[in-house]
Structures are given as C-alpha cells and as structure tokens.
Amino acid sequence: MTTLRTEATALTGTEPPGPSQPTRAAAKKPRLVGTTAWYVVALFVCAVMIVPLLWMITIGLKSRTAVFDIPPKLLPHEWTWSNFIDGPKAIHFPRLLLNSVVITALSVLGGVMTAMMAGYALARLRFPGRKVWFYLFVGSMLLPGVVGLIPLFQLYKSIGWYDTWLPLIVPAFLGGNPLFIFLARQYFLAIPYSIDEAAKIDGAGHFRIFTSVMLPLTRPAWITMAILAFQASWNDFLNPLVYLYSSEKWPLSVGMASFISPFAGQTPNWSYYMATNLLYMLPPLIIFFAAQRYFIQGLGSLGSTTQK
C-alpha cells in the first residue's frame, strides 16, 4: 500500500500534506547544510528563476530602439508604459484572449472528463479486455506526437475540419492524454471497494457513484490533470498555426508570433512582444498560484481515505 501511495503522490507531482503525518515536526532529518549556506543558495536559485522574467518586463518597458543599445542598460531609460497597451492592441488581444480561453477551457474539460471516466472503468469495473486496454493506453504514451502530425493533418483536411477549432478540441474529448488515464486509474485503485458497495446498497447506479462519490474523492487527481491540460492547451503553438488560417480564430500563442516576423524585413518589435508576453503569461500564473492551495487541501482528503 505504501508503494502505491508513493507512486500516486509522486506522479501527481505534489507533496503529502503536513497534517496526515503529525510526527514529522518532531522527527527531523539531519541538516545537510548550515543556515547561511542554505540561504545563499536559495537566493541564487530564486535569482536564476526570476531574473529572466524581470528582464522581460524591462524590455517591455523600453522603447523599440532602446532595446538594441549596446551594452544593454539594465533599467529602461524611458518607461514606455504605453507598450503594454499598444502591444496587445496591435494583435487584437481581447479577441485572441477569448479564443484562447474557449479553446483551452474545452480542451481541459474534455481531457479531464474522458480520462477520469476511462480510469474509473479500468480500475473499478470488471470487463473483458481490461488489462489489454490498459497496456495499450500506457503504451501509447511512448508514441512521439510527431508521428501523428502528418497523417492527422491529412485526415482533418479530408473531413473539412480545416480552419476550425475542432482539431484542437476534439482529441481532448477522445481521451487525448494517456498519462491522465494512467493517473486517474492510480487514484481510483487506491479507493477501497467498500465505498462502492455502500453506494450500491443505497441504490446508486454507476453514473451516480461516479459523479457523487468518486469524483470528489479524487479531487487532487483531476485538479492536477486540469492544470497540466490547461498549460498544454494554452501554450500550444504549432497545432493552431497549422490548422487555423483566419486571424480572428487564432489563440494568443499564434497571435504573439506576428510580432516576430522576419518577412517584413525589419527587426522584430521586441518591446511590444515582451509587454504582450507578460499579459499572455498571466493566466497560467494566476491559475498556478490559486491551485497550489487546492493541491494541499485535496491531498488531505486522499490521506484520510487511505488510512483504513
């Protein structure tokens, strides 16, 4: 049971909460480094992670030509706040933002839903071919995405899905990510069967059990999946570029590319790009900060369910 929990928690990329291991505060591992040394390293790590982003903001504040001063100045000379307005305006930011939101929301919904359903079936329902399908799904994780690129493009073209959002959304609704299925199954396996039995006695059908009992119990699983699916869709660039040619249908990722065009024969407008970049990065950032709490909170419930 310990191994399962280790794998389950480790795979979600989260940490077990404090409360379910009350002895931790007392039992301490031997300290590896002294206090000052730790803080120095911590400072270095934080700097490496944050400074590039601060640099990005600096460029976003510089004027178009000041970006190419040699040697570059660390702080902008003129604080061109207008970049944050002009940059987004140049690519019709609001429309693209809406597009990104719709595409991503649908992808997340589809991906999480179908993965949870498939994982539930694989873990808790007995049916012929159960093991086979599991191995097939896991095996498909090994398939490089590029294998599908050319055949799928031809396929979409022939069924008329070209220049629509369908190639970006429908795969999610068809169990698009095998890793999620694997995760879902892991979580479902950890739930004791007695809960199913209890619900069945109460007269609940499979669907009821799934929605009212299983889903709440596996919250950390689908929250993690949702975050990963969100990132994958929000940041996807190549697929929308290939499948969409009408500019009003583009998500933000593709719209950003119009700043860095070599074809105009001029150097790209980096200050507009970086300023808009910041706005483009905000939603994933906000979601990440908001969801951190859910991870920890949700895991508390997982801990108590397995402590039987």
Partner: peptide, 21 residues
C-alpha cells in the same frame, strides 16, 4: 451492467486510441 457501464465510460478513450494512435 458492469461491462456495459465500463464500455460506456471507456468508449471515448477507445475511439481516441484508434483515431489518434
């Protein structure tokens, strides 16, 4: 009913496997 429910739950993933893998 288990088997029926199972296939219902897993159907999208199976279709996805055939089409996308």
């Amino acid at each position: 009913s288990d088997v029926k429910a199972a296939y219902l739950f897993i159907a999208p993933a199976i279709i996805g496997f055939i089409v996308f893998v």
